[in-house]
C-alpha cells in the first residue's frame, strides 16, 4: 500500500518503473520539454508547469469542458489525458488562438455578443466552438443530423448539440450561440 509520503517522493520500490517521465510537447508552436510525475494531466502540465492558465480546471472529470484545448488539431478534455501520453503532440490552447490585440474571430464574437458572465468557462467554450465549426465543415455528423450522407447544416440545433460538452453555470448559452452563429455565417 502506498502512503501519501511515498507518492510525494516520486519513487516507489513496489512499482516496475520510475514514477516520472520526460515528455516533449509542442505548445502553441513552441517546443516544451518537461519531466513530470506520470500522474500529471495535460491540463496540469499546461497550467502548473507551463503557466498557461487560460485553459481552466472546472470539474477535473471531463464533465464541464472548461479544460478543452486542441491536440493535433482535435478538441479534447485536457483533464482526462496524461501529459506523458502526449510526447511529440501539438497542443493549441486559448493563448494560441489569439491575443487581446489580435483576437480570433470567435473571441471577438464572444466579446461582441456578451457570450459570458464570469468568464471561467469561456476559453473552453471558444476552443469547442472553433472545433464545432471545423467538424461541421468536415462533414462529421452529430446526434441531431437528419441525413448522415449529406453535409450537416450550420444550424442553431447542430451548434447546440455539438457544444453540449461545455457547461456554463452562469447560463450565457443564448449569447454563446449567437456568437458562434455569427462566425459560422460569416464563413
Amino acid at each position: 500500500m502506498n502512503t501519501h509520503s511515498d507518492m510525494q517522493a516520486g519513487q516507489d520500490t513496489a512499482l516496475p518503473g520510475p514514477t516520472t517521465s520526460k515528455t516533449r510537447l509542442v505548445v502553441n508552436g513552441t517546443e516544451r520539454v518537461l519531466e513530470v510525475d506520470n500522474r500529471t494531466t495535460l491540463l496540469d502540465a499546461l497550467r502548473e508547469h507551463l503557466r498557461l492558465t487560460g485553459t481552466k480546471k472546472g470539474c477535473d472529470h471531463g464533465q464541464c469542458g472548461a479544460c478543452t484545448c486542441f491536440v493535433n488539431g482535435q478538441r479534447v478534455n485536457s483533464c482526462l489525458s496524461l501529459a506523458v501520453m502526449h510526447d511529440g503532440d501539438e497542443i493549441t490552447t486559448i493563448e494560441g488562438l489569439g491575443t487581446p490585440e489580435d483576437m480570433d474571430p470567435l473571441q471577438a464574437a464572444f466579446v461582441a455578443h456578451d457570450g459570458f458572465q464570469c468568464g471561467y468557462c469561456t476559453p473552453g467554450q471558444i476552443c469547442s466552438a472553433k472545433a464545432t465549426l471545423e467538424e461541421l465543415r468536415a462533414g462529421i455528423p452529430s446526434h441531431v443530423t437528419k441525413d448522415l450522407l449529406a453535409n450537416p447544416p450550420l444550424s442553431p440545433e447542430e451548434i447546440k448539440e455539438r457544444m453540449s460538452g461545455n457547461i456554463c453555470r452562469c447560463g450565457a448559452y443564448a449569447n454563446i450561440l449567437e456568437a458562434v452563429l455569427d462566425v459560422a455565417e460569416a464563413r
Binding site: R75, P141, H143, T145, G165
Partner: peptide, 10 residues
C-alpha cells in the same frame, strides 16, 4: 453520436 461529448468522442 448519442454518447458522450465531442471532446470525449475524439
Amino acid at each position: 453520436m448519442a454518447g458522450a461529448s465531442g471532446q470525449l468522442r475524439n
